[in-house]
């Protein structure tokens, strides 16, 4: 019998790209279930279609364009599909979802060489493309009928962040209360329940899939920047709690900014990355033309990751 010969080590930890992605999928489940409960069948359809499109597109690109073995088994396309669906309004038509998937997988991920090679987070790139291309659809927060719980009438129309423009900062701040933790008003499908998202994040921490530094530094920076501006002029600038709980900050900080591929590898690099996102998102919200800035903030900081990685190295043994 021909025995195997290889250099050491001869055993391997029970971890694979697939197992890590599976953990992320599990962590996204609570938020996904909440969105199904609120928006009903149409949201289930959007998510299923988004996941199917992403997986299909990755398979097509591998098979017919790159002529190499399929990489869909690592489940990363499934994660992208779920995140893309969570970043879209619940009334998005399926053809728009498909375009988003084409941009996310085809452009943002596979053109760079597939998993691990992309510069920008695929799901966010897809979302931003749609936001810029179809602004009307992407800001139509009409709630489709069929939600299982919640007062549907109260939700239609603008999101909380848009209401800042309509009602003013003070009124908007007043609308954020404890109930926002459980069910935010309209917005992207995945943002409804802060608690469900945080539960998934804690799961990822417990499973040691991610480190908390990026997420915590985003939260801290958003709170700090918002707190300072709010203290200066409460009439113009919304407060810390409002900004933390709205507009995908939690979804972005827990699941998008922590994407391995597009975030720095060192702990301190992660902190810088998080602070950068926090500052950018607040600047876009306060002074930019988009009410929500998380996607842009993450994409901009994604671009800076190679530089951050260059600057921060971990401490080496026996060296100053």
């Amino acid at each position: 019998m021909a025995y195997i010969v290889s250099p050491n080590p001869h055993i391997h930890a029970k971890v694979s790209t697939r197992s890590l992605m599976l953990d992320v999928i599990i962590a996204l489940c609570p938020a996904a279930v909440v969105s199904f409960l609120f928006y009903g069948l149409s949201e289930i359809a959007i998510m299923a279609f988004s996941v199917a499109s992403c997986v299909f597109l990755e398979w097509v690109v591998n098979r017919y364009m790159l002529h190499r073995a399929s990489s869909t088994g690592d489940l990363s396309a499934v994660v992208t599909g779920i995140l893309l669906a969570m970043n879209l309004p619940p009334s998005t038509p399926l053809w728009v979802v498909f375009i988003g998937a084409v941009v996310a997988i085809g452009v943002a991920k596979m053109t760079f060489g597939g998993i691990g090679q992309n510069i920008w987070n695929p799901a966010i790139t897809g979302r931003v493309f749609l936001l810029v291309s179809f602004p009307a659809i992407m800001t139509d927060w009409t709630i489709p009928a069929g939600g299982l719980i919640g007062n549907v009438d109260a939700f239609s129309g603008a999101t909380l962040l848009q209401q800042v423009g309509l009602l003013g900062a003070k009124a908007a701040d007043a609308m954020v209360g404890l109930e926002t933790l459980f069910s935010n008003m309209g917005g992207s499908a995945g943002e409804i329940s802060a608690l469900a998202l945080l539960a998934g994040w804690v799961y990822l921490l417990v499973r040691k899939v991610i480190k908390p530094w990026i997420t915590l530094s985003i939260f801290a920076t958003v709170a700090l920047v918002a707190g300072i501006f709010h203290a200066i002029d409460p009439a113009q600038f919304t407060g810390a709690l409002f900004n933390l709980l709205t507009g995908g900050v939690i979804l972005g900080a827990c699941f998008m900014a922590t994407d391995y591929v597009t975030s720095p590898m060192s702990a301190w690099g992660g902190v810088i990355f998080g602070v950068g996102i926090g500052i950018l998102v607040m600047m876009i919200r306060y002074f930019g033309s988009y009410p929500e800035g998380m996607s842009f903030a993450i994409l901009i900081m994604n671009t800076a990751v190679p530089l951050i990685d260059r600057a921060f190295h971990q401490k080496k043994f026996g060296r100053a």
């Binding site: 021909a2 025995y3 195997i4 010969v5 290889s6 250099p7």
Partner: peptide, 19 residues
């Protein structure tokens, strides 16, 4: 004929250094 199965990195240099 092959008498064992090499399972390391696909590199002659790595293989030659090993055995």
């Amino acid at each position: 004929p092959v008498i064992n199965e090499y399972d390391g990195a696909a590199s002659c240099r790595v293989k030659a250094a090993l055995y």
